[in-house]
């Protein structure tokens, strides 16, 4: 047997090269099919791993002190009562909004059905760009649908499989969304785009087309929220906070800034997919 490492590796390298070359010349349809098939094949494993983690968590919680759990239960009941009250208020406001819209013959914003989904996997190599959730086509998830956690935008559905979906996060370079800067009197629309994930840096998104006359109020947190104009995200969802330092552009007509996404994005376990009740153009255009 040869002791030369180059000679030993020659065989596997040639095979790998051949496989790679074959992959390159295969028809696109076949490649897409293979990719989809792999995703479907992988999905049960991902689901199983995710459920195992939940089981671990369940037994961890189950081992807690009864008093601690009852205190948490009491707090939860109080929070629920508060939320019930808030829900009534919102329902009343929604009804008033509907009445005003019908009076003004204003277009109705798209209505959404919420699908709660557990995060199946989030790989460290693409932590800030993509994650997989445990809801898919069978649950009614459609491509392009917005994904939120509470009032915070997480991203949008990039690909849908049978039981899982891939979510493109707001810090992914492929993400973009129109937004308002809270407190900006001119109420002009800005653009939020994800930025490439650089090693050893905090994940951020970029805010462009900030009016040059806008100055962030000193010492205050400035929230960037969705406009609701694009037909994708409901109005007023939080995208993150605007860094106080704004960057001048050579054109001088606007400035750019950095968006710090919500802390929730770091450790997501569960998200909500907002599925429009009626199909939207973006579902076909993607």
């Amino acid at each position: 047997m040869s002791t030369n490492p180059v000679q030993r590796l020659r065989g596997p390298l040639v095979v790998l090269g051949l496989i790679f070359a074959t992959w390159l010349i295969l028809p696109t349809t076949f490649r897409i099919f293979t990719r989809e098939a792999f995703a479907e094949f992988q999905a049960p494993a991902l689901g199983l791993a995710s459920r195992s983690r939940e089981l671990v968590r369940y037994w961890e919680l189950n081992s807690r002190d009864t008093e601690e759990l009852s205190a948490a239960g009491r707090d939860l009941a109080r929070a629920e009562a508060g939320l019930e009250l808030r829900l009534r208020e919102l329902e009343s406001e929604a009804s008033e909004n509907r009445r005003l819209r019908s009076m003004l013959a204003a277009p109705t914003p798209p209505e959404f059905r919420t699908i709660v989904a557990r995060v199946a996997v989030r790989e460290s190599s693409s932590w800030w760009t993509r994650m997989t959730i445990r809801r898919g086509r069978t649950d009614g998830v459609r491509p392009g649908c917005p994904v939120v956690f509470g009032d915070c935008v997480v991203g949008r559905v990039a690909a849908v499989h049978v039981d899982t979906s891939e979510v493109e996060l707001i810090t992914s370079p492929g993400f973009r969304c129109s937004a308002f800067i809270e407190g900006d009197q001119s109420n002009r629309t800005v653009l939020v785009t994800g930025e490439p994930d650089l090693p050893f840096t905090a994940p951020t998104a970029r805010v462009t087309f900030i009016p040059y006359e806008y100055t962030p109020p000193a010492g205050q947190v400035v929230r960037v929220v969705t406009t609701g104009l694009g037909g994708l995200y409901p109005r007023g969802l939080r995208l993150g906070t605007l860094s106080p330092e704004l960057e001048e552009t050579p054109q001088g007509a606007y400035r750019n800034g950095t968006l710090q996404p919500g802390r929730e994005l770091l450790s997501l376990r569960e998200v909500s997919v907002l599925v429009p009740t009626e199909p939207q153009p973006y579902e076909e255009l993607r």
């Binding site: 492929g174 993400f175 973009r176 969304c177 129109s178 002009r188 629309t189 653009l191 785009t193 087309f209 406009t227 104009l229 694009g230 037909g231 994708l232 995200y233 054109q251 007509a253 939207q280 153009p281 973006y282 255009l285 993607r286």
Partner: peptide, 26 residues
């Protein structure tokens, strides 16, 4: 007439690729 709406619709509805892209002029 609603420039902001057109901008928002394009940004959110169209895929972010480099063939059909949104540019700006001053």
């Amino acid at each position: 007439k609603n420039t902001d709406e057109m901008f928002a619709r394009f940004v959110e509805q169209m895929p972010n690729d480099d063939v059909l892209r949104l540019d700006h002029e001053i």
